[in-house]
């Protein structure tokens, strides 16, 4: 008898994604979908896609999904969740969406203890617009708007928004993970599952920050991108549970 050892999650449409080689978005999409399958909540999920590389996530996800204006993602999720407290509502956001243009919405959704889940993909750049500096770009990192590398004097510090959110009383569970190796990918999946479970138990705001690769705008191979997360990025953004 044949044994199925690999299949697409039900929550994932049978489509090829538009993501670049070695990009972390595809992995993270899949993890979210696997968790939704395992929790049996596909028919109760309402997702909010960001403006960013993941803008057409609804073409890959096999559950109800809406777009949101750039950064307003948690406000849109708030509106949905308050109308349907019994549904499972999550946002999927890049670092520009979550930690620059949408900082206020993110912090206030967390602070209200909004019972939603946020999947925060930190790739350290603005992918969709061509690799500009993000609030999370680390010092010295070259981008199209920091040609000589992020300069503290000119560009300020990398923003550790998960640490900021972790101190808010409304935030229930905040964890930072990575998708740079199979081991970290499994940890990320566990964190995403926990975040959804917290919402299902009505416990409040949950967020998983995932350190993710952007080989295209980091100007390196997928393999080196994974190494960079483990060598350089995690020094600025250490992994672990920040709250919960």
């Amino acid at each position: 008898m044949e044994k199925i050892i690999f299949k697409k999650p039900n929550s994932m449409k049978d489509a090829l994604t538009h993501y670049c080689a070695g990009c972390g978005h595809g992995i993270i999409h899949r993890l979210v979908c696997e968790v939704i399958d395992e929790l049996g909540i596909r028919e109760k999920v309402i997702a909010v896609a960001p403006v960013g590389c993941a803008v057409i996530a609804y073409d890959y996800w096999n559950f109800d999904t809406t777009e949101a204006a750039h950064g307003r993602t948690p406000a849109v999720a708030t509106g949905i969740k308050r109308v349907y407290p019994e549904k499972v509502v999550f946002t999927y956001q890049g670092d520009g969406d979550l930690a620059a243009i949408g900082t206020a919405e993110t912090i206030h959704a967390a602070n209200r203890g909004e019972n939603i889940t946020v999947i925060f993909v930190n790739n350290g750049v603005y992918g969709m617009t061509g690799g500009q500096m993000a609030p999370t770009t680390i010092v010295g990192q070259r981008t199209t708007t920091t040609k000589k590398g992020r300069d503290l004097k000119r560009d300020g510090f990398p923003l550790k928004i998960s640490e900021m959110i972790a101190i808010l009383e409304g935030a229930k569970y905040i964890e930072r993970t990575a998708v740079s190796s199979p081991k970290e990918i499994l940890r990320t999946k566990r964190a995403i599952k926990k975040a959804f479970e917290i919402q299902i138990k009505n416990e409040g705001f949950s967020m998983v920050e995932v350190l993710s690769m952007c080989p295209t705008y980091w100007g390196m191979s997928p393999e080196d991108s994974c190494k960079r997360i483990e060598k350089d990025i995690q020094k600025v953004y250490p992994l672990g549970v920040l709250k919960g």
């Binding site: 307003r72 849109v76 308050r82």
Partner: peptide, 9 residues
């Protein structure tokens, strides 16, 4: 945008 979300629902 909260209104947008409520309307989506």
């Amino acid at each position: 945008n909260m209104v947008f979300g409520a309307s989506v629902a």
